[in-house]
Write a protein that binds this DNA or RNA. Sequence first.
DNA 1: TAGATTGTTAATCGATTAACAATC
DNA 2: TAGATTGTTAATCGATTAACAATC
Lengths: 206, 206
Amino acid sequence: MAERLTVGVAARLSRYLQVLTQARKMGKDRISSQEIAEYTNINATQIRRDLSGFGRFGKRGVGYSVDSLLAEIRKILRTQGQHNIALVGAGRLGAAIASSPIFAEHGITIAAVFDNDPVKVGTTLDGVPISSLDELDAIVHDRSIVVGVLAVPAEAAQAAADRLVEAGVKIIFNYTQALIHSPSDVQVHTSNPAVELLYALYFHLT
Amino acid sequence: MAERLTVGVAARLSRYLQVLTQARKMGKDRISSQEIAEYTNINATQIRRDLSGFGRFGKRGVGYSVDSLLAEIRKILRTQGQHNIALVGAGRLGAAIASSPIFAEHGITIAAVFDNDPVKVGTTLDGVPISSLDELDAIVHDRSIVVGVLAVPAEAAQAAADRLVEAGVKIIFNYTQALIHSPSDVQVHTSNPAVELLYALYFHLT
DNA sequence: TAGATTGTTAATCGATTAACAATC
DNA sequence: TAGATTGTTAATCGATTAACAATC
């Protein structure tokens, strides 16, 4: 498997990863493509097809072993290691992100938190010290962080993104409404729950 | 336009909607397919193709009028009205969601907030009274809510989802890690930032 | 006119699905 | 053996893209 995955396959594999992670926590040993399909809304044939492109991971009549399939997908997606990320913004959303177990579960550590509020700087957020944005460059370099999460007010988003880019961050998760300009070698993922909701409503209304 | 949009088209149109909403706030009158492409990572030809399927909205050599394109897409997606949603969980994530301007901007109102903590019940979250989950059924019926947002601990997610389903909610946004079982007429959208991050990292690492 | 950008064509590629033999 | 579920084929459909004439 030397070729790069297509965007679609990589997106689906990461969905399977999440289902398997949860299934394992629930104590399940085996899972069928049909069960994964129920949780992901991805067609069961598509799931088997995606997986069979990398090997014969399942047992006919039985299904897939949760543990071994998890290991295989992690190998394919190369997500076995630990990853350090930087969180910019220690407000309500920042606090929610920092306290969520969702990152740790997938080997992602919030290694630095930044905020411009002098009252917050020096305190901690879920055990991580809050630093001033002036220290961002030094800290991000120091800890080889390539991912930044924007949880600041929309007005402050572009400036914070610029700082992350200057410091060498290559992936930015933007949880503000703001549109972010960035160099072409930096991926910006904008997540907007309201937009997803309107999209979901369309299919409900029609 | 009597036919239902395909999933892909509806998803892309709602992305354009977000870009246009922000562009308008920035005072832009006109926007080109190329500009929308930069913000959405969707190919410019695809954007023009998507739009031209519904009419000739642009001016050659000029681009699209932000205001009129916004109106057209809202018409296509039928998202012109106001929508009431219920938020379950008044913890840190719930607080972040309730205080975000992102929903109001798209005509979505958080009409009810629920939490099981007796200390929180009776207080308000960003102006919305917090009710006990025991009142969920009555309130959801009363306010004709069809969308519920889960911002509770993972252990409480399925029980909260069951209550929403019983009350008649048809769209659930799940911000917990938990896998949610639901009847086939209820759409569950699970959002997991960690999974999106692993997916983004794959393309960075390869 | 010159430059810019849309709308559209045509060609290719990946996604999707039903069906079913293989096999646990 | 009987039932279940994978792996794979074959056929279809939508997504994607480059190219370019039309036209502002």
